[in-house]
Amino acid sequence: QTVQFNGLEYHFPNPEEAEKFAKKVAKELGGEVRVKDGRWQID
């Protein structure tokens, strides 16, 4: 599972970890999490 933001990609072994990370980062950055092409993106 991949999380993308600021032009970087973070890879996680399972979707739960990816989701948790994506939501944490979005909260800290005040961004929005969305899934695109099977990847988590933070904008």
Rank of each mutant, 00 (worst) to 15 (best):
G30H: 08
E19K: 06
A18S: 01
H11G: 04
P15W: 12
K20Y: 08
G31R: 10
G31W: 12
E28A: 13
Q4G: 07
E16T: 10
N6M: 12
V3K: 00
V25G: 01
V33W: 05
K36L: 06
Q1Y: 15
N6F: 08
Q1F: 15
Q41N: 06
A18F: 02
H11P: 04
R34P: 02
G38H: 05
P15Y: 13
L8C: 15
A22W: 06
E9I: 14
F5M: 06
E19M: 07
E17D: 12
A26G: 05
E28K: 11
N6S: 06
V3R: 00
R34Y: 12
R39C: 14
V3H: 01
R39I: 15
T2M: 08
E16K: 08
Y10L: 09
G38P: 03
V33P: 08
G30F: 06
P15G: 09
I42S: 04
K36V: 15
G31I: 13
G31C: 15
Q1E: 07
V33A: 15
W40M: 06
E28F: 11
Q1K: 12
E17G: 03
K23R: 12
D37H: 04
P15L: 08
I42A: 04
P13G: 09
G38R: 02
Q41S: 07
E9F: 09
E19W: 06
N14C: 14
H11S: 07
W40T: 05
E19R: 06
K36A: 10
E32F: 12
E17W: 06
P15K: 12
E9L: 13
G38A: 03
A22T: 01
F21E: 03
K27A: 13
E28Y: 12
G31A: 13
E19G: 03
D43C: 15
Q1S: 14
A26S: 06
D43E: 12
F21D: 04
D43P: 03
L29E: 06
V25L: 14
E19S: 04
Q4A: 13
D37F: 00
V33R: 02
E19F: 07
K24D: 10
I42D: 04
E17L: 09
R39H: 11
F5L: 10
E28C: 15
G38E: 05
N14R: 02
E16A: 11
A22I: 06
G7H: 05
D37C: 14
A26N: 02
P13C: 15
G7C: 15
K23E: 10
W40E: 04
K23W: 06
E16P: 01
V33C: 15
K24W: 10
V3W: 00
V35D: 05
F21M: 04
F5P: 00
L29V: 13
I42P: 04
E32S: 14
N14A: 05
H11L: 08
F12Q: 00
K27Y: 09
A18M: 01
T2H: 05
K36Q: 11
A18T: 01
E32Q: 13
Q41M: 12
D43Q: 11
V25P: 00
W40I: 09
K20W: 09
K24F: 07
A22L: 06
E9G: 01
L8D: 08
F5I: 13
A26V: 06
H11Q: 09
E16G: 07
F5G: 01
D37E: 08
Y10Q: 04
D43G: 08
G31D: 04
G7I: 01
R34G: 05
Y10K: 05
Q4L: 15
L8Y: 12
F12W: 01
E9D: 10
F21H: 03
N14W: 03
A26F: 04
L8Q: 12
V33H: 03
R39E: 07
F21N: 03
